[in-house]
Nucleic acid binder design. Structure first.
Lengths: 344, 344
DNA sequence: TTGTACGCGTTATCAC
DNA sequence: GTGATAACGCGTACAA
């Protein structure tokens, strides 16, 4: 098998009697080259099947037109939509996107970000692993002026870009909604409290109760490890066995919330009449479960787009290490049947 | 802001009084270097914060350790699991993964594969866009000996790697299952017939009917454009209005099948007694809808892993352009409530 | 507007 | 077991 040798700008130069630099400039639409020559050069490039070598260009510029992503897992509705948003925005600007999964392990996150660094990415978008507490592995990027965008699961400290939702308000409003439906004993499925998103949601929940003068009962606050379907089932059963079971549940994600709906229903509990449930994320399953699950919107694609734009628009000149640019996105309460006691 | 200059193998060489070549070899565990020096060099590399520049290495070798992916959309359960499998396998071998979405447009697929080529990927994994018919954009890879793996949505011609399921048998078995449940008028939600997967599923459906001497009624075969929820709803309503409506539906995906279940139920049709439904893919929603949806398993992660391995194990020596290596994976019928008339 | 010359960081080849 | 050198393809400072 004969590998056809690849065409380089030198081949084009020879063919057209130009110097390689002119070719290079023409292909990059350099203003010093006349429209005519640019056109001619691009045409022959096309004809001869020239394809740029982005590796060489990247080496030369010490950065490839690439955005790196580090997330926990791809195959979750929120995450895949987030990536989709990033990819679309990046590609529009001619950037590639490299993905990496931490599977919620700190060690993986460290190794993956190193690998991304080695590829001289133009910027990094991170949703922290569940385990991550130390943040040293991001320092190498900052030292080199490579922008890091924390999306959704962001750290408290560290000056950098952040794209998040207002988890506190979302938690507050979700809980308030249940209160408005007449709930007085509201349980909360809480996630790991060292991750900003779960911390905010819980705080919102607590404050909503306080402000409506509802007593906080620790028995009703269940701390989950992964907010999985199985955990949701277990927690629901436990709650329903209580001498005084809850009449509402605010779950920090939809998976556990759907699990609660199905488990409670199976035990003969009427939803929303006896138990109103609201989740978080608006995953596809939320619309499918019966009764359909009320939830909080989570603008995944939009967050992805914004994160990508942060990197694409980043210029070293405007970058001040002492400043952290935070974008906070709005969320909506989506009322469906699982919490709607006042059907019209 | 001062960007700390990056450490290169030259810096290590100077520091340790070795030549850059020795450093390079040591870092790559070259056998001609003694264990001791390797250890010493690696240690100082670590201490000095050396990070390899994979761009330079890639330029030198004319290939980056990177796998490119071209798929329709990331945010679909099957696709994101597929990617997850690829990513895990790739990372184990120190490869990065670049993703691109075609959004089922031919033109996007062409542009994306070009961009991937420009990055000198080591291999390409493709699930064809719905529109794609011409395959010329893959030739450039083959010419350069870069392996292309078609996964799930594969073309008919073109010698290359393929990782697929046996759609025919899956369609046959799904239909047979409905027949065994006593269905005699079985509808089919079919996808675009120029894509192998939908063609196979439909053929299996047709042959199952034939072999069980059930008359094929064209009225019961609905050709979908995208197999969306909305299309499923429309099709179901149309079918239920028929003078002699179906008593079973085999849908080529779960989304449309779930839609059928919910739509039929809303119209008072008893599932599975009056209408048995089976989908395809085993998406999360299949387990959530009530009654839970019978479906066909679709081993997304496994397909991803195998595809990645195809590329990682590919060596130019063993590659014969005249040969197409096809891996066909097994699928299972998953019987849930939507088609189970013989509950134990 | 175009050309010359060099360097980006790495690795393969050849030599010792 | 180690070193010197060239080359990968491109972009740009400097020169013309």
């Amino acid at each position: 098998m004969s590998l056809k040798k690849e065409i380089t700008i030198y081949d084009l130069a020879r063919e057209l009697n130009y110097s390689p630099s002119t070719i290079s400039r023409a292909l990059n639409d350099h203003k010093s080259i006349s429209k005519k020559t640019i056109k001619k050069i691009k045409e022959t490039a096309q004809e001869m099947g020239y394809r740029p070598n982005t590796l060489a260009a990247g080496l030369r510029n010490n950065k490839s037109k690439t955005i790196g992503i580090s997330i926990s897992r791809i195959n979750r509705p929120f995450m895949s939509s987030l990536i989709s948003g990033i990819e679309e925005e990046a590609r529009k600007s001619g950037y590639n996107v490299i993905i990496s999964q931490s599977h919620d392990k700190y060690e993986n996150e460290v190794n993956n970000t190193k690998a991304l660094y080695d590829s001289r990415i133009s910027g990094l978008i991170v949703s922290l692993s569940m385990e991550t507490i130390k943040l040293d592995h991001f320092k190498q990027f900052m030292k080199q002026g490579i922008p890091v965008v924390f999306v959704d699961r962001a750290p408290h400290g560290l000056n950098s870009y952040k794209v998040v939702i207002d988890n506190y308000t979302a938690g507050y409003n979700a809980t308030k909604h249940l209160i408005e439906q007449g709930c007085t004993r509201i349980a909360h499925f809480a996630g790991a409290q060292h991750r900003n998103i779960y911390e905010g949601r819980k705080k919102g929940y607590l404050d909503a109760l306080k402000e409506h003068e509802i007593e906080i009962d620790d028995e009703l606050i269940i701390h989950f490890k992964t907010l999985s379907f199985e955990e949701g089932e277990k927690a629901t059963k436990k709650l329903l066995k209580l001498p005084s079971p809850p009449d509402g549940i605010f779950s920090a994600n939809d998976t556990a919330a759907v699990s609660a709906v199905m488990t409670a229903k199976k035990q003969g509990v009427k939803i929303p009449e006896e138990l109103a449930v609201i989740g978080f994320n608006d995953d596809p399953i939320a619309s499918i479960v019966e009764p359909s699950l009320s939830t909080v919107s989570h603008p995944a694609e939009k967050m992805g787009r914004i994160s990508a734009k942060r990197i694409l628009n980043h210029s070293d000149k405007t970058h001040d290490e002492g400043i952290s640019e935070v974008t906070v996105l709005h969320t909506d309460i989506i009322v469906r049947d699982s919490s709607n006691r006042k059907k019209s």
